[in-house]
Design a protein around this nucleic acid. Structure first.
Length: 841
RNA sequence: GCCGGAGUGGCGGAACUGGCAGACGCGCACGACUCAAAAUCGUGUACCUUCGGGUGUGUGGGUUCGAUUCCCACCUCCGGCACCA
């Protein structure tokens, strides 16, 4: 048995056996507590890269640990297989997207198996399967029937490189680029499908039912961007046109000395006077030409043009000029504002430039602001002035109703019918139409007589045709198909046309956690009994990049499913509290892992040439080593640069473990019977049980790195006892068993092999997680640190339960302490029980 | 500008609830084995030092017997949002 660790041989063997034995099949078992562990599924790009390994291997380890802890663990995997790269491959290499995608999936399943992940492959879901997208379409129809899906002609973001529209969430950065390809987006006026995610804005701001990282909660909160204030109606002095404005500062209404409309505001053309028309039209043209990027730059000099028209300020009847300026956006609020230059930075800059009146209506304490003289706007707290009956009302820094001035003015506006309390959100409805082929067709039909009609449930799925031309025209490829779009109206039977856009793939990924429950179920999106047992997802893991996309959409989706009655069948079989939880939030806990960078510390990319390929590493070192290194070398939520040297540490570690478990103990050692209950055995047992505590605690908290460090320390301890009589003791056998059990989640193959070789029953992955014996783990001596004025002067070994008085006496008796004190009498002695003594002079 | 997160040896990273800073590993140095190299094993490895000790967790203050940890101000990096009314 003196053979050496040969990962290639053992990994292939166990992988096969585990698959043959269906070791990772998870089935509903009400007698066992369930644990639904989910890792974000990959796009089938063809190869598992380092990022996939880094997201899957540690979460697999965690799932394995939970299983050994006694949970019935569901740890499924699937593929987010609709999407653009497949179409690009088709265009570039003339391979059909379906063929390309499914070949990739096959390869990636092989790679995930080689990783040793405990996936239940019978639960695999592939979003491009008609079996799957039938239900994606079914959800679309449900949402349509529920009034949550609507089609609207509006200016939308379009990526000229990807040739499709994008949701607002998929436009990133200050240059407003496409999240996928980085190309700056352009605006197009298109008739597109939207989901009413804004209806759920307030619900989505409530994170009380989930334990998600603050970072994600903050990002989603900012993204939703709730602001509280009031809507106030101004009226033009001629023509009586109503101009609705939103303001967060109704308390400054008396300081509104002009109004500003966005250049695209529909009333601009109506109210502009003859004398100003030419200037306004020129300005509108200029604004239309300027990109969103230019308009979005906050430090850009403000420009605008007077319309010639005036509005009446409803609070004081004053006539204020109406301007057009591109610092007001049509896409937020009503596209019109009241301008209060004294108390708003932007309005102030504009007023000064165009010589408009600045009137102070909030006077800060101990300071007298003068509108004509002030150098900058004053947005802070103070007392209302120049505001009729509200003069003297204190205005705080608080927003919304919490501010007494705002609250008082809102009440008054409402009582006078001049305005009302209002809340505005930054969040926009979710644009889900895509002008691409490789996605789920939107199951809608336009009939000249009946209008827009949903495809009935029994006609789903609306299948994608296979014969299609892949030319990037900017139009949906389905539109160019000779016959596909022509159909009959489900309502009147007359000729009608199919919707030729497909759905955003984020729609597919919004509900995949449900499809895993019963991926082949022909009767519904998921099986009721499975759902009642497994839902909700207990632990979700994945990258932070989805914070305001997938992670927001899926929270919306679960609520929309609830409102469409999709969960109704589960209610009878589940306790009310759990039912409420599972229909409110899809994933209870979330953990975001970091990213592995190239050796140069930069993001891995082909163009940089710093890509490290996990397949090569597996071929060279084995999957256990790659898994082990990923979990040891980084803090999981931080990630960091790959180090081709560092991986050797894990190779050495596993070689040592192998040797400890397989090499025969030299026969020259004394008779085991004579060596029982020695001090050394107790010491070994202490380390073993301390390690159980440490590793367990670390796995609970995703601290894989320190768990492995603890296992290395245990290995080091065991090495120091090797070739001593202790290696013949029961304590030694316990140490070997425990080391392997604790190692099993991290390095499943070598743990299984050594478990078998040391006489353990198959499989180690079905064993119970070791229980720590707290008595055995307890230290009997501690090192008492002795400080003089906070500086360490001595370390003394003392019994664990030493009294404060004894500790003090021992410390003062120390020769080194006496020397440091140099005859000075201590002023004070601080004793921290079990830790240190600090002598202050 | 606003909101988050992070700054610790040559490197990745440890440090419970305010109590020995640098666990574990990489790298490096020296030694052993070897004709030699790799592998392996052993020893050392924060900095300075007159070898007594002194200094040290981004910077400067503060609280405390004691601060990587708490408070204040600032610097740098990363991420998100941004004429959002």
């Amino acid at each position: 048995m003196a053979d050496t660790y040969n990962p290639q041989e053992i990994e292939a063997r166990w992988q096969q056996k585990w698959a043959d034995d269906n070791l990772y099949r998870s089935v509903v078992d009400p007698a066992q507590p369930k644990y639904y562990a989910l890792t974000m599924y990959p796009y089938p790009s063809g190869n598992l890269h380092m990022g996939h390994w880094y997201s899957m291997a540690p979460s697999d380890a965690r799932a394995r640990y939970m299983r050994m802890k006694g949970y019935n663990v569901l740890f499924p995997m699937g593929f987010d297989s609709f999407g653009l790269p497949a179409e690009n491959a088709a265009i570039q290499r003339r391979i059909h997207p379906k063929e390309w995608t499914y070949a990739n999936i096959e390869n990636m399943i092989r790679q995930i198996r080689s990783m040793g992940a405990m996936i239940d492959w019978e639960r695999m879901a592939i979003t491009s399967d008609p079996d799957y997208y039938r239900w994606t379409q079914w959800f679309f129809v449900k949402f349509f029937e529920q009034g949550l899906a609507y089609k609207k002609l509006s200016p939308v973001d379009f990526c000229p490189h990807c040739n499709t529209t994008l949701a607002r969430e998929q436009v990133w950065g200050d240059d407003r680029h496409c999240e996928r390809c980085g190309t700056p987006v352009i605006k197009k006026n298109l008739d597109q499908w939207f989901f009413r995610i804004t209806d759920y804005a307030d619900e989505l701001l409530d994170f009380s039912a989930i334990e998600w990282p603050e970072r994600v909660r903050v990002m989603q909160t900012n993204w939703i961007g709730r602001s509280e204030g009031a809507e106030v109606i101004f009226t033009t002095d001629k023509g009586g046109h109503e101009l609705l404005i939103f303001t967060t500062r109704p308390d400054t209404l008396w300081g509104a000395t002009f109004m500003v409309l966005a250049p695209e505001h529909p009333l601009v053309d109506v109210i502009t006077t003859g004398a100003q028309r030419a200037a306004v039209v020129a300005y509108q043209a200029e604004a239309a030409r300027a990109s969103d990027i230019e308009r979005g730059a906050a430090d850009r000099e403000k420009t605008g043009v007077f319309t010639g028209a005036y509005a009446i300020n409803p609070v004081n009847g004053e006539r204020v000029p109406i301007w057009v300026a591109d610092y007001v956006m049509m896409s937020y609020g009503s596209g019109a504002i009241m301008a209060v230059p004294a108390h708003d930075e932007r309005d102030f800059a504009f007023a000064r430039k165009y010589g408009l009146e600045v009137r102070v209506v909030i006077q800060p304490e101990g300071e007298a602001l003068d509108g004509a003289a002030m150098a900058e706007a004053y947005p802070g707290a103070g007392v209302m002035v120049n505001s009729a009956q509200f003069n003297g009302t204190p205005a705080s820094e608080e927003k919304g109703r919490r501010n007494p001035a705002i609250s008082a003015v809102i009440d008054w506006l409402q009582s006078q019918g001049k305005g009302k309390e209002a809340i505005n959100y930054r969040l926009r409805d979710w644009l889900i139409s895509r002008q691409r082929y490789w996605g789920a067709p939107i199951p809608m039909v336009t009939c000249p007589d009946c209008g827009i009609v949903a495809v009935p449930e029994d006609q789903l799925p609306v299948l994608l045709p296979d014969d299609i031309e892949f030319m990037p025209t900017g139009e949906s490829p389905l539109k160019l198909h000779p016959t596909w779009r022509h159909t009959t109206c489900p309502q009147c039977g007359g000729p009608a046309e199919r919707e030729t856009d497909t759905m955003d793939t984020f729609m597919c990924s919004s509900w995949y956690q449900y499809r895993y429950l019963s991926p082949h179920d022909p009767d519904g999106p998921f099986d009721t009994a499975e759902g009642a047992y497994w839902l909700p997802v207990d632990q979700y893991t994945g990258g932070i990049e989805h914070a305001t996309m997938h992670l927001l959409y899926t929270r919306f989706f679960t609520r929309a499913m609830r409102d469409c009655g999709v969960f109704a069948g589960l209610e009878a079989g589940v306790e009310p509290e759990r039912f409420a939880a599972m229909t409110r939030e899809p994933m209870t806990r979330l953990y975001n892992q970091g990213m592995i960078l190239g050796e140069d510390g930069e993001k891995m990319s082909k163009s940089r040439g710093n890509v490290v390929d996990p397949d090569n590493l597996v071929a060279r070192y084995g999957a256990d080593v790659v898994r082990g290194y990923m979990m040891f070398a980084f803090k999981w939520d931080q990630g960091g640069p790959w180090d081709n040297q560092g991986i050797k540490g894990i190779v050495r570690f596993l070689n040592d473990v192998w040797a400890l478990c397989t090499e025969p103990v030299p026969a020259s050692l004394p008779d085991p019977a004579a060596t029982v209950n020695t001090r050394e055995e107790a010491l070994l047992r202490r380390r073993v049980h301390q390690t159980i505590i440490k590793v367990t605690n670390d796995l609970e908290n995703f601290n894989f790195n320190t768990a492995l460090a603890a296992l290395m320390e245990l290995k080091n301890t065991m090495q120091s006892f090797w070739r001593t009589p202790v290696a013949h003791s029961e304590a030694w056998n316990e140490a070997v068993r425990t080391l392997l059990l604790l190692l099993a989640p991290f390095t499943p193959f070598v743990a299984e092999e050594l478990w078998a070789r040391t006489g353990g029953g198959y499989s180690i992955h079905q064993q119970a997680w070791p229980q720590a014996d707290l008595e055995a783990a307890r230290e009997d001596m501690i090192t008492l640190v002795v400080q003089v004025n906070g500086k360490v002067r001595d370390r003394i070994d003392v019994p664990v339960g030493i009294s404060e008085a004894d500790a003090k006496a021992r410390a003062l008796a120390s020769a080194k302490v006496q020397e440091a004190l140099d005859e000075t009498a201590p002023k004070r002695v601080v004793v921290v029980p079990g830790k240190l003594v600090n002598i202050v002079v």
